[in-house]
């Protein structure tokens, strides 16, 4: 596979400043700040319950921060409804995939393009089906009957149908075999090469760092470490805690 040359990294597109998000009384995010630059792949690492998914959900508007701000290209989005944030170019492949189980693969993709109704939708569809040829073979099959890996492909493909400029991926490797994980991560690299900024939450730190430019490490609702992916791979703490060494 020949990768297109990546577009150069640009200015900050997504800025998260000191957000505190709660689940009822549970203080899940305790002052998270991070930023994402145009065309970057940024990964959010951490163990179970560290607040990675909560951070993504706060960005996409499913959860609201009690204090702090989320800014997309200079525009506050922490008070914008989830369905409007999609229209601003931020699409998500949620944790656990959340494909529409009773709709076919084709209809799932169609739903991904819900906010678009122009001729370009057909091109988008062709592009994601080229990215994931598996899906083309299963177009008429109900999404609930796909394998875990195929559902993950569908979730990413569906998010791409919304023409995101920022793509949020929540644990794309969850429950997948190593072979499938590689397929998915190759696709993420390819998506990024077409100019889409990617934020990927992962438990599989090694894999995530292998494709990311930068990473943030979360622990109990806080960012405890941030650096370039290369530096994080070498970092003693990260190696011990997340790369299974020591």
């Amino acid at each position: 596979m020949t990768l297109q040359s990546r577009p150069p990294i640009g200015p900050v597109v997504l800025e998260i400043d000191d957000i505190h998000t709660y689940y009822g009384n549970i203080h899940a995010l305790q002052g998270v700040s991070m930023n994402v630059r145009e065309h970057e792949i940024v990964t959010l690492l951490g163990s179970n319950g560290a607040g990675k998914s909560t951070t993504l959900r706060t960005i996409s508007g499913i959860l609201r921060p009690r204090t702090g701000s989320v800014t997309l290209r200079g525009k506050r989005i922490d008070n914008v409804a989830a369905h409007d944030i999609v229209r601003m170019g931020v699409c998500q492949s949620p944790e656990g995939r959340h494909v529409f189980p009773r709709l076919t693969v084709d209809e799932n993709l169609d739903m991904g393009a819900f906010i678009h109704s122009d001729a370009q939708v057909a091109d988008d569809r062709n592009r994601v089906l080229t990215l994931f040829p598996r899906l083309r073979e299963r177009l008429k099959q109900r999404a609930g009957t796909l394998s875990g890996g195929e559902q993950q492909m569908l979730a990413i493909a569906r998010a791409m149908m919304g023409r995101p400029t920022v793509l949020l991926l929540d644990e794309p490797s969850m429950g997948l075999s190593p072979l499938l994980t590689d397929v998915i991560f190759d696709a993420i690299k390819e998506i990024n090469a077409t100019g889409v900024t990617v934020v990927v939450v992962e438990q599989n730190a090694q894999l995530a760092l292998s494709i990311a430019d930068r990473g943030y490490v979360m622990q109990t609702g806080r960012i405890v470490l941030t650096d370039s992916a290369a530096a994080l791979t070498q970092n003693e703490t990260v190696r011990k805690a997340y790369l299974g060494e020591g």
Binding site: S60, A82, L103
Partner: peptide, 15 residues
């Protein structure tokens, strides 16, 4: 149909 199948995901599609 999207809301019926998965409301959160439907929101993520802009519904």
């Amino acid at each position: 149909a999207a809301i019926r199948d998965d409301e959160i995901a439907a929101q993520g599609m802009g519904v």
